[in-house]
């Protein structure tokens, strides 16, 4: 059943006034990945207005967004559409809709790295991702060329304040709103 409070949830959490949308489609027209989305950007906004919470959160659209913000830039009503998509990711994570999403999984590994080292350890994070997916040979030729040309950070630097920062990150991840 449609929940009318979905619009409130999005507007409160994102700080973006979505209700001024008049469905002109400029966000969709400028989106470089609209063609990959199950629900294109202006329709996502439309479904938020009509309270179709599950339909939006269960779709892959929020995770296809590149956060390039072309939509936000071009919206004639000043809606920060990219921010709305980012908020949809947060809600979809907190509500369990994104459990098996690759992008969410990779983001999680990046934050893991920052929690442990204070910085993003490239090789370690990519290896962890490939191992978890069982993709042992994926993009191997590309990876070898990158290694050969020194384009993959092999070592991970530990910052001095990693313990303090790690504790903060751990605490904030634990409080993921529900």
């Amino acid at each position: 059943m449609p929940l009318p409070s979905f619009l409130d949830e999005i507007e409160t959490r994102s700080g973006v006034t979505v209700s001024v949308c008049y469905q002109c489609c400029r966000c969709t027209n400028g989106c470089p990945v609209a063609g990959e989305m199950e629900i294109v950007p202006h329709r996502v906004i439309g479904y938020i207005l009509s309270g179709e919470r599950e339909k939006v959160l269960a779709s892959t659209s929020p995770w296809k967004c590149l956060q390039c913000a072309t939509c936000s830039l071009r919206c004639p009503n000043g809606i920060d559409v990219a921010r709305v998509f980012e908020t949809l990711r947060q809600i979809s994570l907190a509500s369990g809709f994104a459990a098996k999403n690759d992008v969410a999984h990779f983001d999680d590994l990046i934050i893991d790295s920052v929690q442990r080292h204070g910085r993003f350890a490239e090789l370690e994070t990519i290896m962890r991702y490939r191992l978890s997916k069982g993709q042992f040979m994926k993009d191997a030729a590309m990876g070898l060329d990158m290694l050969r040309k020194g384009r993959i950070g092999l070592s991970s630097h530990n910052i001095r304040g990693r313990k303090e920062l790690g504790a903060i990150i751990r605490r904030m991840r634990g409080h993921r709103d529900r």
Binding site: Q90, G118, R119
Partner: peptide
């Protein structure tokens, strides 16, 4: 002793996390 900005990963998880990482 700078730390990672959190790029797109932190705000997708939680806005406050992104702000704290950058605030440091």
């Amino acid at each position: 002793d700078w730390s990672c900005c959190g790029a797109a990963a932190a705000p997708a998880m939680r806005q406050e996390l992104s702000d704290v990482l950058n605030a440091r």
